[in-house]
């Protein structure tokens, strides 16, 4: 798994629960190191062990942790560059949702060896969508739940999100966009590049 993903998990744990909790998790995972490097690629098993130990350490379900991770990625001030990159998806939440099909390609444009699962948005009634995540990275759908929730706040949209599993084990998020201009949202200035 790409270091950026592992590093995201590390930042999330350190900044949310504290450095000592992370050290405990890494001791439990017993990988021989404590820090993930963002630009290196690690064996998938590393991430799986870290997440297993993390569930035990926090005594929480993986799905909940991953959703919080998604929210963290968008809303923590330290990760402002990432929020900005997501906001490039579109001027409003609706356009942003439609840009999700391109997310894996956009990601590869930035970091060529970072592969995210294919995402597919289907609108089955006005304002009602299904976002299905390819099954190659289990749990990614939960991260996307958190991302979509936080991005709705970011755009000032009111959306109702719900996790489902499709027949072919794909993680599917049901999205009901109730009001795309519900609140003010956070600003996005094209020219203000994140430091």
């Amino acid at each position: 798994m790409h270091g950026l993903i592992n590093r995201a998990i590390q930042s999330f744990v350190c900044l949310t629960y504290g450095r000592d909790r992370w050290e405990k998790v890494m001791q439990c995972a017993d990988l021989g190191f404590e820090e993930f490097e963002a630009m290196l690629v690690y064996d998938d098993q590393c991430s799986e062990r870290v997440l297993r130990c993390l569930c035990r350490e926090l005594d929480r379900d993986l799905s909940e942790i991953l959703e919080d991770l998604g929210t963290f990625l968008v809303s923590h001030p330290d990760l402002e560059p990432l929020r900005r990159l997501l906001r490039f998806g579109g001027g409003g939440y609706l356009e942003f949702l439609h840009s999700l099909d391109d997310l894996p390609d956009r990601t590869r444009l930035a970091v060529s060896d970072l592969h995210l699962p294919k995402l597919e948005l289907r609108e089955f009634a006005t304002g009602h969508f299904n976002l299905s995540c390819a099954a190659d990275l289990p749990g990614f759908g939960h991260v996307m739940m958190g991302v979509l929730r936080a991005m709705a706040d970011d755009y000032g949209a009111l959306a109702f999100l719900e996790m489902q599993k499709s027949a072919d084990q794909k993680e599917v998020i049901r999205i009901a966009l109730l009001d795309s201009a519900f609140a003010e949202g956070r600003g996005f200035d094209l020219g203000a590049r994140a430091e």
Binding site: M39, L40, L85, A110, V111, R193, A194
Partner: peptide, 23 residues
């Protein structure tokens, strides 16, 4: 917009690479 996106994405990726190089 794609160009602006790319500039920011590459800047962020470069920053991560640079900090790896420093370490």
């Amino acid at each position: 917009i794609e160009l602006l996106y790319l500039v920011e994405a590459k800047t962020a990726a470069m920053e991560a690479s640079r900090s790896l190089n420093l370490r």
